[in-house]
Amino acid sequence: MAFEKSISLKDCQYTYTIDPNIKKYTLKDLTFSESKVGHYELSRLLEEVPNSGKGFLLKIVIHKELTGFKLNITDQSGLRLVNIFKSDDHKILQDKFYFLMDSLVERQVFTKKEQ
């Protein structure tokens, strides 16, 4: 998957774009870790029941030059993409996803636009 400037997950209400004011130190403050090649990565488990260990993996990778990013939600193995927005069965997971993304929008990592 290539780095993109804007990403809209299937059936998601919003399109997310890299904020022009993004800063590397903000990513470090937000617990993004630096990979061996210098990209910034954040992985979070979206769980219906906190600390259950059962849920879907949200992974965000931001290019080391802060020019693009990858965003996907997978099963825990990280191999299969999952669409948590397709039905209201995953309403709690959707709310947790939007809460996390809103905090990144607030800190000027992303901007969001309603589709």
Rank of each mutant, 00 (worst) to 15 (best):
A2M: 14
F3Y: 13
K5P: 11
S6G: 10
I7G: 00
L9T: 07
K10L: 15
D11I: 11
D11S: 15
C12Y: 09
Q13D: 11
Q13N: 13
Q13E: 11
Y16L: 08
Y16A: 05
T17F: 02
I18G: 00
I18Q: 02
D19H: 11
P20A: 00
N21L: 12
I22E: 01
I22M: 04
K23N: 11
K23G: 07
K24P: 00
K24G: 02
K24E: 09
K24D: 03
T26K: 01
T26C: 02
T26P: 00
T26L: 03
L27N: 05
K28Q: 15
D29G: 09
F32E: 07
S33K: 15
E34Q: 15
K36Q: 12
K36A: 11
G38H: 07
G38W: 10
H39K: 08
H39P: 07
Y40G: 02
Y40Q: 05
Y40I: 09
E41N: 15
L42I: 09
L45D: 06
L45M: 15
L46Y: 04
E47F: 06
E47P: 07
E48I: 09
E48T: 10
P50L: 01
P50D: 04
N51R: 10
N51T: 11
S52E: 13
S52A: 11
S52M: 08
G53L: 10
G53I: 14
G55V: 11
G55I: 10
F56Q: 05
F56W: 06
F56R: 08
F56C: 06
L58G: 04
K59F: 08
I60S: 03
K64W: 05
K64V: 10
E65M: 07
L66G: 00
L66R: 01
L66N: 02
L66Q: 02
T67I: 10
G68P: 02
F69H: 03
L71P: 15
L71A: 05
I73A: 02
I73F: 02
I73N: 00
T74K: 07
T74Y: 05
Q76C: 07
S77T: 15
S77L: 08
L79C: 11
L79K: 08
L81R: 14
V82G: 04
N83V: 05
I84C: 05
F85M: 04
K86L: 12
S87V: 07
S87H: 11
S87M: 08
S87W: 06
D88Y: 12
D88F: 11
D89V: 13
D89G: 10
H90C: 09
H90P: 00
H90M: 13
K91E: 05
I92D: 09
I92G: 06
L93R: 04
L93S: 03
L93Y: 00
Q94G: 03
D95S: 12
K96R: 15
F97C: 04
F97A: 01
F97T: 00
F97M: 05
Y98I: 06
S103Q: 13
S103M: 10
L104M: 09
Q108W: 03
V109T: 05
V109C: 01
F110K: 00
T111C: 03
K112N: 02
K113S: 07
K113T: 14
K113M: 05
K113R: 07
E114Y: 09
Q115P: 03
Q115N: 15
